[in-house]
Design a protein around this nucleic acid. Sequence first.
DNA 1: CGCATTCCAGAACGTGTAGTCTAATTGGCA
DNA 2: TGCCAATTAGACTACACGTTCTGGAATGCG
Lengths: 190, 190
Amino acid sequence: MVRTARFTEDDFIEAAMSLVAEGGPTAATMQAIARRTGAPTGSIYHRFDSRSAILGAAWNSAYASFTGALAPLLHQRQAREAALAILPWAEANPRRAAFLLLHDPVSLFEDSPPPPTQRQALDRLETAFDAAFRACIAPATDDETLARARFLIFDGPIAILRPSLSRALPPPPHAARLIADLHAGMPVAA
Amino acid sequence: MVRTARFTEDDFIEAAMSLVAEGGPTAATMQAIARRTGAPTGSIYHRFDSRSAILGAAWNSAYASFTGALAPLLHQRQAREAALAILPWAEANPRRAAFLLLHDPVSLFEDSPPPPTQRQALDRLETAFDAAFRACIAPATDDETLARARFLIFDGPIAILRPSLSRALPPPPHAARLIADLHAGMPVAA
DNA sequence: CGCATTCCAGAACGTGTAGTCTAATTGGCA
DNA sequence: TGCCAATTAGACTACACGTTCTGGAATGCG
């Protein structure tokens, strides 16, 4: 290292995340990232091969953070606690949460897919997290139980969280009550 | 009328809807709409002032269809039946459902908002539907009850429906059971 | 039969995009 | 002090996009 770097990879990842969180995938143009970080576009391409590479890195980072918060609870077969854990995670990682949960991933990579290396890393993250999820509901493996658990642990809580996420507000106090009631009235193990 | 029209407004609306349903808002470019309908771009501009006008018309049409299917049930205070009615509606209107429920509306109009006329028409649809929703949960008006009901009637069922919507498949048989269980374990009137 | 009107048709324009290229700057090290 | 690789810097290219423009084709009416 012979010259001190003014910009790190994380600077660009953070900028891309918050731009997507605020204005959707198309808001994260290279020039918008450059403006937000104060870097010229050339410096971004010095760190990343392409725009998809930045978005892919951001996605993997946010996904790893999310699954890292939930996987231990799933392995302990605590479905309710895992669902509730989404709230403090989102409050502690507002940009990551809005980036990951608010916008549709298909729009992120529709123009060009992320580099194969990142795609493989994401595949590993996904299979590891899927294993945790299946461990939580084992021994059931039928489609209905899977869909039910996916709704109770992920999609339901995320739907409850979405209104406050899209307003960049912390989860309201009744969000936790809603999720708890959801699990009380409709247990994962039917 | 002096020359028979080869393309109608609905041709372009339908094309825009299915393009968005399949590939997100950015997939519905004017050239993509032109390709799908077989029309040159000039013919599209003969029917619509702008791209936002097409997307706005598509949105209003889909929203009107959706609320038209649910509002009567809400006025009869049948929250459970309204939530369940989303399934047959989505099965009967697969393109509209995927267009309306799968993708984030903020990405649709982020570049340029729809024409004021359409915006006002949508406002009217929204206030009318909100009145139906409030009639369903009256006399409660507190935030928690509103959020709870919104989740039970709309966001929850939509989250249950989303996986099959994004695969362009009809709702699986267990979707109705899931929604029914949701309302059985967690009634709107707490 | 030709005129007026409606519509089709697609080339052309300006803008904003992702990505490239070349040069200038920086700072540890011999 | 002078070298050299890492990094910044931003002009530049090629392209896709939304939109406009001009011309031609069709059809009801007099």
